[in-house]
């Protein structure tokens, strides 16, 4: 489980995140939703220790993020940011193989290769594994990045808007893959999502963030209500019963 205790990050006197107190349970998918600039991504990068805290503590499975050595944390939590652009020219397989670095320090063993193959197959990238990343479509590349993070084989996986640039079909596929990863591989996935309906359908918990603070956190049914969503997004939202659960209508 991930616990945030009085977490604060100050940018200027007006712009700041927190203080945030939050306990994300282990297992399943937790979606962070909220308007632009609410601090979802910042919160995720704070948990993933890519950004330093100004106050408070974050613990992942009992490890204090600020005090545990980075190389030990890399076996507990993996994190993928929204923008990924590399100067090196890598094939899909070489990229995914980097996920094994915390375990093998770059000396890949037969076990590592097996894990890499599994991650690639899990995201149905086997036919593309010899291709270079610059030869892939946006959706395929996004899948390759997520495969790399999953290949790191950590209990906790943090993803910042993995549905960015994906069309309807690929978004659904990506969420199904992640759902499977949580269910079959027992991972705890924390994910920043823009589309409330994706969150509602695939996530187990939703955390609504606004102006750097957590407004609502709980199971989907608790957050997927018209009053909560209207307040969070500052725009009229209706919630209707869809064929596959509650559906937010906001246009």
């Amino acid at each position: 489980m991930i616990t945030l205790d009085g977490v604060r990050k100050d940018y200027t006197s007006e712009v700041r995140i927190g203080p945030v107190d939050l306990a994300i349970p282990a297992g399943g998918i937790t979606a962070l939703i909220g308007p632009n600039g609410a601090g979802k991504s910042t919160l995720l990068t704070l948990i993933g220790r890519l950004l330093g805290l100004d106050a408070g503590t974050i613990e992942i499975a009992g490890y204090d993020v600020a005090r545990t050595r980075s190389k030990d944390l890399a076996k507990v939590v993996s994190v993928l940011r929204q923008e990924n652009h590399f100067i090196t020219r890598l094939t899909v397989r070489q990229l995914v193989a980097f996920g094994r670095f915390p375990h093998s320090k770059g000396r890949l063993t037969a076990v590592d290769e097996e894990m890499i193959s599994q991650a690639i197959d899990f995201f149905e990238l086997a036919d593309l594994e010899g291709r270079y990343l610059d030869e892939l479509s946006g959706g395929q590349r996004q899948r390759a990045y997520v495969a790399m993070v999953l290949c790191q084989d950590t209990e906790f996986v943090l993803l910042d808007e993995p549905l960015n640039n994906l069309d309807m079909r690929h978004s659904v596929q990506m969420m199904k893959h992640l759902h499977r990863a949580a269910a079959e591989l027992g991972r705890t996935i924390v994910i920043v999502l823009h589309d409330v309906n994706f969150a509602s359908h695939y996530a187990d918990y939703i955390c609504a963030v606004k102006d750097g603070a957590v407004v609502e956190f709980g199971p989907c049914a608790q957050v997927m209500t018209a009053p909560v969503l209207t307040e969070v997004f500052d725009t009229p939202v209706q919630v209707i019963d869809g064929p596959n659960g509650p559906l937010a209508v906001y246009y």
């Binding site: 890519l50 980075s70 890399a74 993996s78 994190v79 590399f86 090196t88 770059g106």
Partner: peptide, 20 residues
Amino acid sequence: ARRLNVMALGRDVTTGLGLN
């Protein structure tokens, strides 16, 4: 050299993979 391979992926990925 092996760490340099990781460093080439940028600060965030390097940190995520457990290097200072």
